[in-house]
């Protein structure tokens, strides 16, 4: 047994909050969870202005970067730029998800098949409009029994 249950959230930087919200909600199906510190007085106090998006059981707090971020080449679809977030779908929904992304004209790399010794089946790779790398995977262990992911304890990021 590990000593950690789950990852619950990430604070990521984007260049355009509206564009990012449109991508995560409109393409990936996330929902706006809360908008935090959008008031001028909060921003003046130095509080982080961010929109919290729930993508299934994971919260993305999307924040504006104050300066231009290090962006990988535009034609690089698979990578990390430090971090990549991967979401799993049932194997029988994988083709449907792939088509949905194509319908939204999301540039993709893959599917890539993983070794059978690991838990992952096939992955596709893409990026959000800022360049944060994302992955959708189906997993060979999708019928395995694991602890339930703990309910998210908060709506914002502190």
């Amino acid at each position: 047994m590990a000593y950690v249950e789950s990852l619950s959230h990430s604070g990521i930087c984007v260049h355009d909050l509206k564009e990012a919200e449109s991508f995560y909600c409109g393409v990936l199906g996330a929902a706006v969870h809360s908008r935090v510190n959008f008031k001028t007085q909060d921003a003046l106090r130095g509080r982080s202005v961010h929109t919290s998006l729930m993508l299934s059981d994971y919260l993305f707090a999307i924040m504006l970067s104050e300066d231009w971020m290090n962006i990988p080449p535009l034609d690089q679809l698979r990578g990390e730029n430090r971090i990549r977030h991967a979401f799993c779908v049932p194997k029988d929904k994988f083709a449907q998800i792939l088509q949905s992304l194509r319908n939204h004209k999301v540039a993709l790399e893959g599917p890539v098949t993983h070794p059978e010794t690991g838990p992952f089946g096939e992955s596709i790779y893409f990026r959000d409009p800022t360049g944060n790398f994302l992955e959708v995977v189906w997993r060979r262990d999708e019928s395995a029994s694991y602890n339930e992911v703990l309910p998210l304890g908060h709506g914002g990021v502190g």
Binding site: L7, S56, Y58, A86, F87, I97, V149
Partner: peptide, 9 residues
């Protein structure tokens, strides 16, 4: 249909 799977670092 999706759930968080893993983070690559």
């Amino acid at each position: 249909d999706i759930a968080f799977s893993h983070m690559v670092v």
